[in-house]
Simulated scan of single mutants.
Amino acid sequence: MVTVDDVRALARTLPRTSEHLIRDRIKFRVGRIVYVAFSRDERTMGFGYPKDERDGLIAAEPDLFFLPPPADLRYHWVCCHLDRLDHEQMTELVTEAWRMVVPKFLARQRLGD
Rank of each mutant, 00 (worst) to 15 (best):
E53R: 08
A9W: 14
F38T: 07
D41V: 09
R16S: 15
S39L: 05
L14K: 09
Y49H: 00
A11G: 02
F28Y: 01
D24F: 07
L14C: 01
F47C: 06
G31I: 05
P15M: 08
T44M: 10
R29G: 04
P15V: 11
H20V: 12
R23C: 11
P50V: 06
G46E: 01
L21M: 09
I22R: 09
L10F: 10
A11C: 15
R23K: 10
R12L: 15
K27N: 11
K27H: 12
R54Y: 01
I33A: 14
L10K: 09
P50M: 02
R25T: 11
L14Q: 05
I26C: 14
V30L: 04
F47E: 06
Y35Q: 06
F38G: 03
D24M: 09
F38V: 08
D52F: 11
L14V: 03
R54C: 03
L14T: 04
L10G: 04
T17E: 06
R29N: 05
E42K: 03
D52W: 12
R54P: 01
R54N: 04
I33M: 13
K51D: 01
G48K: 02
T13W: 11
T13E: 13
G48P: 05
R29W: 07
Y49A: 02
V30G: 05
Y35E: 04
R16M: 15
D24N: 14
F47R: 05
S18K: 13
A37W: 07
I26F: 09
I22P: 05
S39T: 07
L21A: 10
A9L: 15
I33T: 15
K51R: 13
V34T: 11
T44A: 11
L21W: 12
E53T: 08
R29Q: 00
A37C: 10
V34W: 04
M45C: 01
Y49F: 07
S18Y: 11
T44G: 12
G46S: 08
K51S: 11
I33R: 12
T13L: 13
G46K: 03
G48D: 02
G48W: 02
I33G: 11
D24V: 06
R32S: 13
R12V: 13
Y35N: 08
F38W: 02
D52K: 13
V34I: 08
K27D: 07
V36Y: 04
R43N: 14
V30P: 08
G46H: 05
E53P: 08
E19G: 07
P15C: 09
R54T: 00
T17N: 00
R23G: 13
S18N: 14
G46R: 03
G48N: 05
F47A: 00
D24T: 07
R16D: 14
A11R: 08
D41C: 06
R54W: 00
F47Y: 01
G46T: 07
R23D: 10
E19P: 01
P15N: 04
G48R: 04
I33L: 13
L14P: 00
E53Y: 05
R40P: 08
R29A: 04
D52E: 15
E53G: 02
V36R: 04
R12C: 14
I26D: 08
R16F: 12
